[in-house]
Design a binder for these strands. Structure first.
Lengths: 240, 240
DNA sequence: TGGCGTCTGTGCGGTAACGCACATAGTGAT
DNA sequence: ATCACTATGTGCGTTACCGCACAGACGCCA
């Protein structure tokens, strides 16, 4: 438990932060700090989950790869969640991949231990279950959004979600990468991003995107963003 | 516990069927048989959940309604699941509506009781958690499918999923209704269904759809169908 | 300084799905 | 039999997005 810097302390993760001090202290020895780089694969589709992760700085994309290689994202986790819910849901594995979208730190916990802790049924279990519902809400909204909204709207949503989780106005990722997340073409992203840039909402260059005007971005996004956000807030607030 | 007919017995629900006899017997007095009609709303978006339901014959759609009135389905539950996971996840409510898609029976349980039972941490909890993961898989796949596959493919998927859950080759629903589920236009469904009918895979007339050739339907569907199906089977098999 | 790889801009033809409008056909009530 | 209603069929112009092709632009390394 020696000198974590502020941002690297386990408590920077909202799930861990929501725990009573007693519970937290019990978990602490089992939390191992790790650092992820952009593009790291946290786990593969179908791979057995040995550990779960509580991000403090990094942001993780949950995505699916089709047989023909096309990909689409279904959810996003940052310091507001954890990676590996399948461990306590009992499935041991899932059909999706988890990929680092923004580099940074996280805390690792052995799957076995998490299962034991979950089995105690206390506040930790409650927090994990609440997060599960938040994640489901996010995935559901992605499903609907994918069907009913334009590339530009989805791009706005995605930028805002990433910004919230990364807690930085600057994102490091190419348009190609974003296209894979949105399940569209790179060129479509180029055009949509171009419009946002022309309007002065963002600026980008060779893999660097800066959000210049968050408010007007929110004005242009579809309702899906707010729904996910307020639902997450609700589920967290409730837990306290 | 008096004379339920075969199909109407609680055990016709796979979740309840997966329980050891002791557990099952304890729950039995709290299971109240109910019957739903086509179009019944099991719960509204944001409404507080007083009860959960274990379908035995009926099929329930989980869907979302946008501000502009457009709708899209994210998941489907029949005798392989339950309606109201938010109760044990701790959110008390969700952002989606649950609507009866195929009329029939179900067993109702008070939310409070379910929470208590879940809190015991036994096999019932395990079954519910496993189902939660199955549902998440389904919703995830819907998200991806919505983005990457055509109306016709999605229609095939939806027909097969409904058929599996309703356990009947005849479905009672208009093309308008299906369009709302798929998040598309009625006319698009008309055209796609017309092609399937011409090919001899289905037959339909004024709200009645009959699946004539299940095999060739499976040949035409996107991979999403099999993925959801095998993942559900895996999660159930594991539980035994 | 030059070259190479990655990232971005743009245009063009094709297709899937949309929105709308209207025609047709069963169905059930009177 | 008639009428009203709901379900289905179909066509047409428009839009969003795709697939492809290629051109520039920047960044890094030799």
């Amino acid at each position: 438990m020696p000198g974590f810097t502020e941002a690297r302390a386990p408590r920077a993760n909202r799930l861990l932060a929501a725990l009573p001090t007693g519970e937290y202290k019990r978990l602490l020895p089992d939390l191992e700090p790790v650092t992820f780089s952009l593009g790291d694969v946290v786990y593969e589709s179908g791979g057995s989950l040995q550990s779960v992760y509580f991000p403090t700085q990094c942001v993780v994309s949950l995505l699916y790869t089709m047989e023909n290689g096309l990909t689409a994202e279904m959810g996003l986790t940052g310091n507001d969640g954890m990676v590996g819910v399948a461990v306590f849901l009992g499935g041991d594995t899932t059909r999706n991949r988890a990929v680092i979208q923004i580099a940074g730190g996280a805390f690792k916990m052995r799957a076995k231990l998490l299962q034991e802790e979950f089995g105690r049924g206390g506040p930790f279990q409650q927090v994990l279950l609440r997060y599960t519902q938040a994640l489901m809400t996010q995935i559901s909204q992605t499903a609907v959004c994918n069907r009913l909204h334009s590339v530009e709207q989805r791009l706005c949503r995605w930028l805002l979600l990433s910004r919230d989780r990364g807690e930085s106005d600057e994102l490091r990722m190419s348009q190609e990468f974003i296209a894979n997340m949105l399940g569209g073409r790179r060129e479509s992203v180029t055009v949509a991003a171009g419009r946002l840039q022309d309007a002065g909402l963002i600026r980008y260059a060779r893999g660097h995107i800066t959000i210049l005007d968050r408010e007007r971005l929110e004005a242009r996004v579809c309702e899906c963003y707010q729904i996910v956000k307020t639902e997450c807030d609700r589920l967290f607030a409730h837990g306290k």
